[in-house]
Structure formats: C-alpha cells, structure tokens
Amino acid sequence: MDEGFLKEQQVMESDLNSETSHKSSVDFLMDWFRRRSIFVLAYGTGCGAIEMPPTFTSRYDAERLGIRGAATPRQADVIIVSGYCSYKTLRRIIRTYEQMANPKYILALGSCTVNGGMYWDSYNTIKRLEDYLPVDMYVNGCMPRPESILEGFMALQKEIGDGKISSWQKYEDNYAFYRKNQEAVLGQTVAPAYDADWYLYDGGL
C-alpha cells in the first residue's frame, strides 16, 4: 500500500535523518546523556493532564526512565501539549516554548492536536498544532493511557539518542512560517514580538 498513512509516515521521517552526518563526537556523547535525562515542563495544557500524575507516580513511575518534572520553562526539555488547545492556552504554550533552552521537544497527546479531534467544530480551539509549533512525537488515544505515554517517551528518547530529532532547529530556521500562522490565529498578541534575529543570535559568552 504505497499511499495513505504509510506514505505519510515516510514523508515525516524522511527529513528527520537527513543531516546526522556532520555530528561531531561530542554531539553523540551529549545525545547519550540527553537520552537518559528528560525534564518535562509542569504544564497541564489540556484534558490529557489527568494522566500525568499516574505516569509520574508509583504505579507507572516515569522517573525510572530518567523522566522528571521541571517547574519552570528554563529548566525543561519537553513540553507536553496534552489534548486540545484553545487560543488562550496556545498563546501561553508558545510563550513557554520560546523560553525553553534548546534542544527542546514537544510531545502532543491525543487526536485533538492532529486534526482538532472531538472539538473539530469548536470556535475556540486550534485544529492542527503542527502549524504553530514543531511537534516531535504524537501519542494517540483520546486521552492516552499512561502506558502509551511512556511508550511515546521511550520512542522520543530513542530518537534523541540517535540524534535524529531537530525540530527546534526547524522552528528556528523557518520561524517566519510559524510566526505567520500564530499571528493569523492570535493576532498581534502572541509572545512579545521578538524579531527573527533574536533566534539567529549566536554571539555571547
């Protein structure tokens, strides 16, 4: 079956492993560490947030995989968009995403982040998270169970370990595309209008 879901999967993965060639040995070492320690931002954006406590506590215990909660975006690596995303929440997610330090990843739960899910006709939720923020890993399930969230994490960790993930680079490279979409939906009141050069800034100590 060369069309439909499988084809789309290949398309998505095609641009991922395009530029792993020029990675230096330090990068591989760092990827080894990044794989073993993930800090998830403490932000329950949608209805999937009710499955976060079971995932991080005694029964499913994400800490044994090295996954721990982080209070502020400055300390976080992964932000979980758990389900549908209203405009007000999208504005805060974009704000916290931009405050996280690279390399950063987005884990999107449920079908609401793929095509609007159950609230496909709601006037206040966005239908496709990919237009506004680069998503690394989708976990399906209309509120996925803790096991599937852990499976999502492990898949994310494997991708990080192999150094294939670079969605934050994609966000910086075509920042204008993402910003245009964000402003189309949120008007001028997105995060403070940091002009693009702030992203390409590589000076500093």
Binding site: Q99, P192, Y194, W198, Y201, D202, G203, G204, L205
Partner: peptide, 10 residues
C-alpha cells in the same frame, strides 16, 4: 553560549 535576554520582561 549564553544568549542575552531581549528585555527585562523576558
């Protein structure tokens, strides 16, 4: 590298 914050509200 340490990236300078854009303004005091960042």
């Amino acid at each position: 590298k340490a990236k300078e914050a854009k303004d005091r509200f960042d």
